[in-house]
Design a binder for these strands. Structure first.
Lengths: 221, 221
DNA sequence: CTTGACGTAGAACGGATGTTCGGCTATCAT
DNA sequence: ATGATAGCCGAACATCCGTTCTACGTCAAG
């Protein structure tokens, strides 16, 4: 039967590694690269399993040929794509963090491209440019790009998420890790900088405006 | 000029041969196969023209890598704008920043995908994962991914570049902006955190190990 | 003519690479 | 027990391969 004999886990790994390698580098790997990448202990093991995989018709080989391992199926459903995230505004401490409205998303005159693998779903994604040094305590620099995901309801934010928070009483925006206290009346806001102490705010005085998914800093050159 | 200079006929043949070869065999040819297939008289000729083609941005090469000739338009058929950067190690303060050797690049079991628009050329790119809080003063957190570019010679680093520096006298690694003093004997190292003062080191006591191109922080979710 | 840039040849070097072989362990039917 | 089979490991080997170096030739600019 064709399908019954389960492929040994190690051979799965080999197949998977070759797949990834070809995808990423545009050419097949060498025996030794397979050895390392798939966690084999010696090249003879690779030879051994490659023979088995060839017999199982899962790949073909050019004998005595470097990088002569060709996968039988070139199919590669995983879409490693680029997402264009609109930069809808800037974060400054003194104003609420902008959230994207229809207009902003409709006319993204400025976008940042990120690999889909970095952010997963595109749903509700937008980006903000940080202005000023006010986010230093979140280890975010002037000029950094923060990739955010829209928060529809407060429950979208889980304990420990890094979120953009506007503090009504102080009239300032900040990026902090958010933890709900047990009584639900206070929020603990924890700076990213581990040398700084967390502090507490009244939950009604804090507006959570979005979750931070990713920070990207392009170093000036 | 970009478009005007006509490609020498021989380089056309090389390109054409590589195209056909990849099409038919599913992997790039070796230098010697190109030599025969495109009718070159020696391997050094192939080397020579390949260099020219690479400069013309018509193909890219993995150096010292068998069959390491990748046509630019074949390289990533679906995701031409995503680059897979191998994560070759970790930065810790107490050790020199790793630089990619052949082995590390050969086994990219761990990569980070970035949009090409973020980093420009792929040449010499590699990534490191930051371990520990030692890079806090460069506004880089535990777990951040730093995308680096290999430094072949110290002159690759220009004043103001953010670089990975290993301080021999203190036996520690750090990320700082590097400025050469006029007399060439000292380096000014400037932390990213604007609240911190720059300091000076003997140029001979500082090994520059790579330039930081980009910092990526995936916020835990 | 000289010079320098460009293209060409041939050969050699050092490292990478696929292959093979002897030996090892464990499982299992004989 | 015994042998067979499958899986595994390490080392060695002959070859392959990318690179580099020297030398030669051509041709246009100075």
């Amino acid at each position: 039967m064709a399908t019954t004999s389960a492929l040994p886990e190690i051979q799965m790994r080999i197949l998977d590694f070759i797949n990834r390698y070809v995808e990423e580098r545009g050419m097949p790997p060498t025996i030794r690269e397979i050895q390392q990448g798939a966690g084999l202990s010696s090249t003879s093991m690779v030879s051994y399993h490659l023979r088995a995989l060839e017999k199982a018709n899962l790949l073909s080989r050019y004998e005595r040929c470097s990088r002569g391992v060709i996968l039988q199926h070139t199919a590669r459903p995983q879409s490693a794509d680029v997402i264009a995230v609109p930069i809808v505004g800037q974060i400054v401490a003194s104003k609420p963090v902008p959230t994207p409205d229809a207009d902003a998303l409709a006319a993204p005159d400025n976008v940042i491209h990120v690999a889909r693998s970095l952010v997963g779903s595109t749903k509700g994604l937008y980006a903000l440019e940080v202005r000023g040094d006010s986010m230093i305590d979140a280890l975010i620099n002037d000029g950094d790009i923060v990739i955010m995901r829209k928060v529809e309801s407060p429950t979208d934010i889980k304990n420990g998420d890094l979120a953009a928070v506007f503090l009504l009483d102080r009239n300032e925006s900040t990026l902090k890790r958010v933890y709900r206290e047990a009584d639900g009346r206070r929020l603990k806001l924890k700076p990213e900088n581990p040398t700084m102490k967390p502090f507490y705010v009244d939950a009604r005085q804090a507006m959570i405006l979005g979750r931070v998914e990713c920070v990207i800093r392009r170093v000036a050159q």
